[in-house]
């Protein structure tokens, strides 16, 4: 369990964290989400002790660790660029934390082999980091962090430097790993899809403070601000409110709550069909339909249609 109280941190004039408080339940997987410069990495590094806060406290499992050195916090930290020990092979990398604790050789070997099996690197023991792909290096780094049986696992944009395909694959794999190991995990990411896919709890940061925290569905369905709504998925503006493109309904006949629009273009993207419209005032509007919905409407460019937004789906704020 991690508890952070009124944490603040400045770099010169730049406020990285302004009075942030946070609770991460034991065994959960929490994502710190936000644009670059939002303070999410600083928050993570402060939890690990790699950064000293200007004010506030950090508790790990009920103990105040604010002034404890990173060496003694018992956290596993995974870096964006792997931080692989280049002069050591995979086995020595993973064994590092145990070797410096002078554990018996047999125990170290067994632990390393078991962890390499968990991360799917069995047989790579004697390879060097330079002989591994990015994804493999990151899995090695994860095994290395898990070897010291950390109280919490902290991941700083762990998949940020990887290809899209590898990223998706590692994501699924990390989720499964977490379900097996159950170590309290905090993940920093700027990718909302990654956060929604992986996390039990999302903490959305902006300009050094928390905009909203909650489950992925809470944040998606009941965003606390237009920033949250805009960050978690595509939005369009209609009648002065923000709305998700898939929440806009299209009808062929007018009703008391509809707005008139003209179809500009129909784009078929496989399962999804994107309808580009122009409203009466001339402003554009994009609507997402499923294939079946689009087929039923038989829309084509130039056609006049009527759009309607369900009440619950709007977020009435003044633009983004």
């Amino acid at each position: 369990m991690i508890r952070v109280d009124s944490l603040s941190k400045r770099f010169g004039d730049f406020v990285a964290l302004g009075d942030v408080s946070l609770h991460v339940p034991a065994g959960s997987l929490t994502a710190l989400l936000g644009p670059s410069g939002s303070g999410k990495s600083t928050l993570l590094r402060t939890i690990a002790g790699l950064e000293t806060p200007d004010g506030g406290t950090v508790h790990l499992d009920g103990t105040d660790v604010t002034n404890v050195a990173p060496q003694d916090r018992g956290v596993g930290f995974v870096f964006q660029h792997y931080a692989a020990f280049k002069h050591m092979n995979v086995r020595d990398n993973v064994a590092f934390g145990l070797t410096i604790r002078k554990r018996p050789k047999d125990e170290i070997r067994d632990t390393v082999d078991r962890l390499l099996d968990v991360v799917g690197l069995t047989g790579f023991q004697t390879r060097y980091p330079s002989q591994l792909s990015g994804g493999q290096r990151q899995r090695m780094a994860l095994a290395r962090a898990l070897a010291i049986e950390p109280k919490v696992l902290l991941l700083d944009e762990p998949f940020g430097a990887l290809d899209r395909n590898v990223r998706t694959e590692l994501r699924t794999w990390l989720r499964r790993l977490h379900d097996e190991v159950h170590v309290t995990t905090v993940l920093v990411t700027h990718d909302q899809e990654e956060a929604m896919d992986l996390a039990d709890q999302i903490v959305l940061l902006n300009h050094g403070s928390i905009e909203q925290e909650g489950s992925p569905t809470e944040l998606y369905d009941t965003p606390a601000s237009d920033f949250v709504m805009g960050f978690l998925g595509p939005v369009v503006e209609l009648d002065g409110g923000l709305v998700r493109p898939h929440d806009v309904a299209i009808a062929l006949t007018a009703d008391h709550d509809t707005t008139e629009a003209q179809v500009v273009r129909v784009v078929h993207l496989g399962f999804e069909v994107r309808i580009e419209l122009e409203l009466a005032g001339g402003s554009p509007l994009t609507v997402q339909l499923t294939r079946a919905q689009a087929a039923r409407l038989e829309l084509e460019a130039g056609q006049i249609v009527f759009v309607r937004v369900p009440e619950v789906a709007t977020f009435a704020a003044g633009g983004i």
């Binding site: 941190k9 770099f11 730049f14 590094r45 950064e51 660029h81 430097a161």
Partner: peptide, 14 residues
Amino acid sequence: MSTVSITPGRRPRV
């Protein structure tokens, strides 16, 4: 993006 980051605060404390 370069692996050598020079963001402030990347150095350990004094």
